[in-house]
């Protein structure tokens, strides 16, 4: 009885000990990421670009739709970037403030990139994880569907879509969303296949955890590293796609604009000596892409399980 009493007391003491916080694989990865200078520089750039997109509108003196009649018609001589008349980035060919237009273009381009990558991450991850985990005939049907969709020249389809159903943001998102998840689904499926036969999945199955729960609780968290890396590389890809479409004149329509549209306009007026019209949008475009690539590289290194 006394012994039991002691035992209970020591058990109670051990139970009451403060819980030690574990170091999760995510925390490890974060530490490695924070030590990576290139990736941190990329992240800072992206943050600055995001701040520019969010708060730039408040700094701008001109709105993006107003025409500055004082520079109209003499953009090459009067519309250059200056602090005095409030056109920090100069004006475009019609005398609209390029700063305000760049802010708006940044908003739209980032939105397209993030929404496109977001669709890819959600749809692609779930689709690939289900196909890989369920396997068998389901997998065959699901992946052959992806193959068929992939074999269609998507740029052609996207252009057709935009021409047939009218040029709108919704159509653009739909078109980009339709194609962006295919690669993701393939990558995730491959990863799932290698995870599926690991013992911890078998342990979950043996104890009766439902298929859906295994996918959500065990497969997806273990895939997230790959997905995160691929998603950061997918964002610039989406921005590029949108820019290309806009460059062709099929993307976002006036009065909205995007980096692609701005670059397209700037390139068109390059020979008139208004180089700033090309330089400013291009600058933001390039540093954002660099930022995403550096962050993507950093994430890949940080999440690599071999880098312990």
């Amino acid at each position: 009885m006394v012994i039991e009493h002691d035992k209970m007391r020591s058990l109670a003491a051990r139970m009451a000990q403060p819980e030690v916080r574990g170091r999760s694989p995510w925390a490890d990865a974060r530490r490695r990421f924070l030590r990576n200078k290139a990736a941190m520089a990329g992240l800072v750039i992206l943050l600055l670009v995001a701040l520019f997109a969010i708060f730039g509108g408040q700094i701008a003196i001109w709105s993006n739709e107003e025409l500055d009649f004082s520079v109209m018609g003499q953009v090459a001589t009067m519309g250059h970037p200056s602090l005095e008349n409030g056109h920090y980035f100069g004006t475009d060919d019609l005398g609209r403030d390029l700063f305000a237009r760049t802010v708006q273009g940044t908003q739209i381009s980032l939105l397209v990139g993030i929404v496109g990558a977001g669709i890819a991450v959600i749809v692609g991850t779930l689709y690939g994880a289900v196909a890989g985990y369920v396997g068998g005939r389901t997998d065959q049907v699901m992946m052959r569907t992806v193959d068929i969709l992939m074999s269609i020249p998507y740029m052609f389809v996207l252009i057709l879509l935009l021409v047939m159903f009218g040029r709108s943001m919704t159509m653009l998102f739909l078109g980009i969303g339709l194609i962006s998840w295919l690669d993701m689904a393939r990558i995730v499926r491959g990863q799932t296949l290698s995870l599926k036969n690991r013992e911890f999945i078998e342990a979950a199955r043996a104890t009766g955890v439902s298929t859906w729960r295994i996918i959500i609780r065990h497969i997806v968290p273990n895939l997230l590293g790959v997905v995160a890396v691929y998603a950061t590389l997918l964002v610039p890809l989406m921005i590029l796609t949108e820019s290309f479409i806009s460059f062709l004149g099929l993307g976002v329509q006036e009065p909205l604009t995007s980096w692609g549209a701005l670059i397209s306009e700037g390139a068109g007026t390059m020979s008139y000596g208004t180089l700033w019209q090309l330089a400013f949008p291009l600058f933001f475009f390039v540093i954002t892409l660099f930022g995403f690539f550096f962050v993507g590289d950093g994430l890949r290194d940080a999440l690599d399980p071999k880098e312990r």
Partner: peptide, 15 residues
């Protein structure tokens, strides 16, 4: 219930 061969591989590394 079952106990597995590889102790580390049978535990989900993210949990």
């Amino acid at each position: 219930q079952m106990i597995f061969q590889d102790p580390l591989a049978s535990l989900d590394p993210r949990m």
